[in-house]
Amino acid sequence: MSDDATSAPVPLELMQGNLDMISGVIPWGRRLGFRMTKVEKGHVWGLQPWKDRLVGDPDTGVIHGGVLTAFLDNLCGTAASSTMERARFVATLDLRIDYMRPADPRRDILGEAECYHVTRSICFTRAWAYHETRDKVIATAAGAFAITKPRLPSTMGGQDDA
């Protein structure tokens, strides 16, 4: 196969039309149950449903902080990938999470992330987790993501690779 095949354009519309696949391609992402709800170039929105098995403190019913970390990391990575002109993965180099307050018990969490700067090899992102609006944020994230070499869609795996 030619090198051109590994760098074929992947329009943003392809990502927009496959949000469920994007959310479910990573086994731990499927297990946590989060999903992408909207994607634009450099910006993505998502939902982390509350589930009893994701509770960090049974006395409060609040979702575990590690779930928020995974959710925000995935949103940031997807926002970074959405800036690419060609099919590229990104890998987390650095991710800082600041927890502002606990999530409300037994409530789904909304999130959004943006990729605000891209160099030849690194994407820089920020993200927010909240309930109704970002006015009362639960956690924020700032991340740096390495841009990987182009890959053919056939090498990207699927839901049966768990």
Results as ranks from 00 to 15, higher is better:
residue 133 T to F: 12
residue 25 V to F: 00
residue 154 S to L: 08
residue 68 L to G: 09
residue 91 A to S: 14
residue 70 A to K: 07
residue 121 S to M: 11
residue 36 M to Q: 08
residue 93 L to I: 08
residue 134 R to A: 10
residue 86 R to Q: 13
residue 12 L to Q: 06
residue 8 A to W: 04
residue 157 G to F: 02
residue 126 R to W: 08
residue 31 R to C: 05
residue 106 R to W: 00
residue 30 R to Q: 08
residue 142 A to K: 14
residue 38 K to G: 09
residue 133 T to H: 15
residue 118 V to T: 15
residue 101 R to W: 01
residue 86 R to V: 15
residue 62 V to S: 01
residue 27 P to E: 03
residue 135 D to R: 15
residue 89 F to N: 12
residue 85 E to R: 08
residue 88 R to P: 05
residue 162 A to T: 09
residue 123 C to Y: 11
residue 12 L to D: 05
residue 65 G to R: 05
residue 46 G to H: 05
residue 124 F to L: 14
residue 55 V to C: 02
residue 64 H to M: 04
residue 57 D to T: 06
residue 124 F to A: 05
residue 36 M to E: 02
residue 6 T to R: 14
residue 115 C to M: 11
residue 56 G to H: 04
residue 63 I to M: 12
residue 2 S to Y: 09
residue 152 L to M: 11
residue 131 H to P: 12
residue 38 K to I: 00
residue 155 T to Q: 14
residue 95 L to E: 02
residue 19 L to A: 07
residue 65 G to C: 06
residue 82 S to A: 07
residue 96 R to F: 01
residue 103 A to M: 01
residue 114 E to Y: 06
residue 61 G to N: 02
residue 137 V to M: 12
residue 150 P to T: 12
residue 86 R to S: 11
residue 102 P to A: 00
residue 17 G to H: 06
residue 78 T to N: 12
residue 25 V to Q: 06
residue 107 R to Q: 15
residue 47 L to H: 06
residue 84 M to K: 13
residue 18 N to Y: 00
residue 43 H to R: 13
residue 50 W to K: 04
residue 41 K to M: 03
residue 37 T to N: 08
residue 22 I to G: 02
residue 110 L to A: 14
residue 106 R to M: 06
residue 16 Q to I: 01
residue 147 I to P: 13
residue 30 R to A: 05
residue 141 A to Q: 10
residue 58 P to F: 01
residue 130 Y to D: 05
residue 94 D to M: 05
residue 149 K to Y: 09
residue 114 E to K: 13
residue 10 V to G: 00
residue 110 L to M: 14
residue 17 G to N: 15
residue 139 A to S: 15
residue 93 L to Y: 03
residue 64 H to T: 05
residue 121 S to P: 09
residue 103 A to E: 03
residue 87 A to L: 09
residue 158 G to H: 06
residue 151 R to P: 03
residue 32 L to E: 00
residue 60 T to R: 04
residue 38 K to F: 01
residue 28 W to M: 14
residue 132 E to P: 06
residue 141 A to S: 14
residue 38 K to T: 07
residue 39 V to C: 09
residue 42 G to Y: 00
residue 25 V to S: 07
residue 143 G to D: 09
residue 27 P to G: 07
residue 122 I to S: 07
residue 26 I to T: 05
residue 159 Q to D: 10
residue 133 T to M: 12
residue 144 A to H: 04
residue 154 S to C: 07
residue 13 E to T: 15
residue 81 S to P: 00
residue 73 D to N: 09
